[in-house]
Design a protein around this nucleic acid. Structure first.
Lengths: 190, 190
DNA sequence: GAGACAAGTAAACAATTGCTGACTTCACCG
DNA sequence: CGGTGAAGTCAGCAATTGTTTACTTGTCTC
């Protein structure tokens, strides 16, 4: 076996802990408001190791964005158009993992590369939605898919970052119905 | 006449200039990433005056939020349900004043009072939309109104903060149609 | 015009920021 | 077992942060 006893010195493990702590901090407090010492303390790791493993605070942030992108892409899966609303409703009300990744993805850092990653992830999500719609006229469809993405993003914000009632405590069932209407209106047949 | 010669010392004027500079900086860069020196320089004003007129950086931010709230409430006006989509489309593609206020409103600062203001403005906006729908079952309607608000917020983000094509350069006409569908789906009769 | 008070300035403060370099300690291999 | 390189520590750096304090300058009134 490879991971028998938990080694007291494990580069891979500390890297992972740093990433996890950073994701939570960046997601909750934003980039500028988060200090590398906060992250290191949360991870139970020395501050200097951030620079060793990620070169800089910005490097760590970019790694977080990449992770969030993969996570979102994975969680999206391949869902037919009819199932999209329910999927969004589930993930918004579920373990709060997806909203967290989403809110992380929306945090700005002033870093150019971070912006690039952000844009790429968002655009690819929209394209995935558009593909599920299976329509011609790809440009109009893509715009409508991006509007659905906008709804999802706004939903995450109004539940996670600045909770507003009754939306904040609505269950998956409460959300699925109106979200279904939106999906139908934006991308439904005809 | 009251404003004959532009006085070189005018508390009201410098207050105004500070607020304007702060709104732009906070809106574009976020709270934590903006320094009081940035704001003061933009306003062409001494840094210490921020603390004199607004007590603290947080005080200045709260003043900005209040201003954004009034501005948004004013720009919303009283629009019948059928006109909402067009109104949103206009303001998103117009002078970029409204998206700027919106993105300012969504910036977090860790300040408790700021959160309170934010929440109040957002909730009152949602209530205004719900009222325009003129439906019974106020709770379900309010949730649907908040979903439309979520769409608007996400739209502002995907045009202003992290521009995504083709949504970012879509004109008012391009937006009005799909937005109309969303409004109809969420709050339309039946 | 002189005095008085508000408006604006300059400098410095204590704290915090991201980051670095020299050091120590552990784990593994021959 | 011993040494060798990676993993982790420590202290401190230079820069920047929000804020305050003591000061100067403008402007209005009597």
């Amino acid at each position: 076996m490879t991971t028998s006893t938990p080694r007291r010195r494990d580069a891979e493990e500390t890297r992972r802990r740093l990433l996890e702590a950073a994701r939570r901090r960046f997601s909750e407090d934003g980039y500028a408001a988060t200090t590398v010492r906060d992250i290191a303390d949360d991870a139970g790791v020395n501050v200097a190791l951030i620079n060793r493993y990620f070169a800089s605070k910005e490097g760590l942030f970019e790694a977080c964005l990449r992770h969030a992108g993969e996570e979102l892409r994975r969680s999206a899966g391949d869902v037919p158009l009819a199932g999209i609303a329910g999927r969004i409703a589930e993930q918004m009300t579920g373990a709060a993992e997806v909203p967290a990744q989403l809110s992380l993805l929306l945090r700005t850092s002033g870093d150019e590369r971070a912006d690039e990653i952000r844009r790429a992830v968002l655009l690819s999500s929209a394209e995935k939605i558009a593909a599920a719609a299976g329509r011609p006229d790809s440009d109009r469809t893509l715009l409508r898919a991006e509007l659905l993405l906008a709804t999802t993003i706004g939903l995450a914000l109004l539940r996670w970052t600045t909770p507003i009632e009754p939306l904040a405590s609505a269950g998956a069932d409460d959300l699925a119905e109106p979200l279904g209407d939106v999906v139908e209106a934006l991308l439904g047949a005809r």
